[in-house]
Design a binder for these strands. Structure first.
Length: 137
DNA sequence: GCCAACGTTGGC
DNA sequence: GCCAACGTTGGC
């Protein structure tokens, strides 16, 4: 089991939207590093859902229900998507500010590389974030 | 809304 | 193959 984090602008596709839809293909990734991480995702992996730009906080947990396949929205190039379903929203969302203030979390790529939109999260960091969010899986 | 950081493109 | 120019992302 691996743990991940994906970003979305809530104005574009929010966690609430994912809950309404029940399932979505995580399409539109056009960055090689992010794409390669998508391809590393396994069935059942858990994914933190982060709202960028106008949220700046982790708001929920999702799960991988289909591993990487070709992105149907890509007209050229070699891009992939995975399918995600919502697991649950965090009871308390965990802000970027909070994450930055905690030494154990300050090294995750969310902080180190703010432009990366799909990234792995160490197991300990994942569980700490859930703890901060008063949420159990 | 601004702009720094990063990735990509293309001229040489 | 280098690197300047450009486009995009996302924190502030």
């Amino acid at each position: 089991m691996q743990y991940w984090l994906v970003k979305s602008e809530p104005d574009d596709y929010s966690f609430d939207q994912l809950r309404q839809d029940g399932r979505t293909a995580w399409d539109g990734i056009r960055n090689y590093q992010a794409r390669n991480y998508l391809r590393d995702m396994a069935l059942g992996d858990l994914v933190l859902y982060y709202h960028s730009r106008t949220g700046l906080e982790i708001v929920g947990v999702a799960r991988v229900v289909r591993v990487a396949y070709p992105d149907p929205t890509a007209t050229k190039g070699d891009w992939s998507v995975v399918d995600l379903v919502p697991v649950k929203p965090l009871t308390t969302s965990v802000s970027l500010k909070t994450i930055k203030s905690i030494p154990a979390l300050a090294e995750i790529q969310l902080v180190k590389n703010s432009r990366l939109s799909v990234m792995p999260i160490p197991k300990e960091a994942f569980h700490l974030i859930l703890q901060l969010g008063n949420t159990q899986t």
